[in-house]
Amino acid sequence: MGLIEQVFSLVFGSGRNVLRDTVEVFRPNAEAQALRDHDRQGASLSQFAAEFYAPQRGSFDRLMDALNRVPRPAMALGTLGLFVAAMVDPVWFSARMVGLALVPDPLWWLLGAIVSFYFGARHQAKGQEFQRDLVARMAQVAPPEPTLSEPVRPQGEPQADGNAALDEWRHQRR
């Protein structure tokens, strides 16, 4: 009886479970895998929450953001509206187009400059805002990179740190 008890305690006993350890070589522990998956999913959700966090803004800022979103859809829908107007009432449409043809070229250049500067400035501002947010998020995630310059020490004898080549270089620099 003693031998059988020793075999069972070796395989299924309170010490090492040889059978479980052998199986885990070929198949991961389901409970441990579930914990790892849970931690990974929690980290992913935390990252998404930080990425899409929008600070509370005042009503004026929200109104300005809403007004800034109007020109592009208005231009796109206005262009489609011109096509519809041309099909519905060609005489009315041609009268409007004759009026546009009478607009002098410098006024067209001015309109082009205003539209270009509006969208260019908005694109640049949004790009810079994105870069600022990206750098801020990266600083939260990644540790700061070490600098290659050595720390500033008070004047005096350079400190030896056991690296003969570095000590010699420091001595030559003085």
Results as ranks from 00 to 15, higher is better:
residue 120 G to K: 09
residue 141 V to E: 02
residue 35 L to C: 04
residue 137 R to G: 03
residue 129 E to T: 06
residue 111 L to T: 08
residue 30 A to K: 13
residue 56 Q to G: 03
residue 91 V to L: 04
residue 77 L to T: 07
residue 80 L to A: 10
residue 89 D to K: 09
residue 61 D to T: 14
residue 93 F to S: 02
residue 9 S to Q: 15
residue 29 N to D: 15
residue 36 R to I: 00
residue 18 V to K: 14
residue 116 S to K: 08
residue 143 P to C: 05
residue 71 P to R: 11
residue 73 P to N: 12
residue 89 D to L: 02
residue 71 P to D: 11
residue 77 L to G: 01
residue 131 Q to D: 14
residue 113 A to W: 04
residue 31 E to F: 13
residue 164 A to Q: 04
residue 11 V to I: 13
residue 125 A to C: 03
residue 128 Q to I: 10
residue 43 A to D: 10
residue 57 R to N: 07
residue 31 E to I: 10
residue 41 Q to L: 14
residue 154 P to G: 13
residue 54 A to L: 12
residue 124 Q to P: 00
residue 90 P to C: 03
residue 20 R to P: 00
residue 27 R to S: 09
residue 19 L to M: 13
residue 162 G to P: 03
residue 18 V to R: 14
residue 89 D to P: 01
residue 146 P to C: 02
residue 49 A to I: 04
residue 124 Q to N: 10
residue 3 L to E: 12
residue 113 A to N: 05
residue 42 G to M: 09
residue 56 Q to K: 15
residue 38 H to S: 11
residue 15 G to P: 02
residue 90 P to R: 10
residue 148 L to W: 12
residue 48 F to N: 05
residue 1 M to S: 12
residue 85 A to R: 12
residue 169 W to A: 15
residue 97 M to D: 01
residue 54 A to S: 07
residue 98 V to W: 12
residue 51 E to Q: 14
residue 31 E to L: 14
residue 9 S to Y: 01
residue 158 P to K: 13
residue 92 W to L: 11
residue 45 L to T: 01
residue 158 P to C: 10
residue 109 W to C: 12
residue 128 Q to C: 10
residue 132 R to V: 05
residue 76 A to M: 11
residue 20 R to T: 09
residue 166 L to Y: 00
residue 30 A to D: 05
residue 116 S to L: 13
residue 132 R to A: 14
residue 60 F to D: 04
residue 30 A to L: 07
residue 146 P to G: 06
residue 62 R to S: 05
residue 120 G to D: 06
residue 158 P to E: 12
residue 147 T to D: 08
residue 78 G to K: 04
residue 153 R to K: 11
residue 63 L to S: 08
residue 60 F to A: 07
residue 73 P to D: 13
residue 80 L to M: 09
residue 20 R to Y: 01
residue 27 R to E: 02
